[in-house]
């Protein structure tokens, strides 16, 4: 019988080594796998490269991982939030490297990485500082820039519900980067609020097929970043 459940977030992230590349799902707080990130902080891996759309809020979740000094480099489209100084402070002190990527290029680089496509051309960012130093080529009248697929050692994402085979469905706009990230890592870990037996999800409605998922962690009542921040929480 196939059962991808792992007991506890700590066990699910225990083998992430120093220097690993880790994709972390979420757009702002929507879809951020806070319990998995906090387990990664507890675990202690450092010199990480984090691929994520943002850099977190307050001093919980992704911002707390940065604050703990575990991240060497961030690959990201929007590392700015109204209520966090963690990333800006580290960046200005030169303690974290930033690779800024247009959001659609980031999504496509992850998708390409997961689909075995090493690189692709796109017109996005041509004529801007983000295309400087990259290979350019015309397709007809359209000038394009070469962008490379991204693969990670681990992906950490949040779903709404999974079955024991690792098929996943999501909640509203919390889906965001999770499906492409699930495809692009050596080990994909999904935290979900509900786990059901294989056969209990509607096969027509599955968003991430189980082949992309290695470990499922049951987190029945996931914390919400904005609620933690409103309560003045910090992690650890």
């Amino acid at each position: 019988m196939i059962d991808k459940r792992v007991v506890g977030a700590a066990a699910a992230v225990a083998d992430i080594p120093d220097g690993a590349t880790v994709m972390i799902g979420g757009f702002g707080e929507a879809g951020s796998p806070i319990e998995l990130i906090h387990a990664l902080i507890d675990q202690g891996a450092k010199q990480l490269t984090v691929v994520s759309n943002n850099t977190g809020s307050g001093e919980v979740g992704l911002a707390a991982l940065l604050k703990a000094g575990r991240v060497r480099k961030v690959v990201c489209s929007f590392p700015r939030t109204a209520n966090s100084t963690v990333f800006p402070d580290l960046y200005r002190r030169g303690e974290v490297e930033l690779e800024l990527v247009p959001q659609g290029t980031l999504a496509e680089r992850i998708r390409a990485g997961g689909a075995g496509i090493p690189a692709f051309f796109t017109p996005t960012a041509v004529g801007t500082p983000l295309a400087q130093g990259k290979e350019h080529r015309f397709f007809g009248e359209t000038e394009c820039v070469l962008e490379f697929g991204i693969r990670a050692d681990f992906t950490l994402i949040k779903g709404r519900r999974a079955d024991t085979h690792g098929n996943v469905v999501y909640h509203r706009t919390a889906r965001n980067f999770a499906p492409p990230m699930a495809t692009a890592a050596g080990i994909t870990v999904v935290q979900v609020a509900e786990v059901v037996d294989a056969g209990q999800l509607d096969a027509e409605s599955i968003v991430t097929p189980g082949i992309f998922v290695d470990r499922i962690v049951h987190v029945p009542s996931p914390q919400q970043e904005s609620a933690l921040i409103a309560a003045g929480a910090r992690y650890p």
């Binding site: 489209s77 929007f78 590392p79 700015r80 959001q103 960012a125």
Partner: peptide
């Protein structure tokens, strides 16, 4: 802090 989001796309 440079931040671009989806504008270029």
């Amino acid at each position: 802090i440079p931040a671009v989001g989806g504008a270029m796309d």
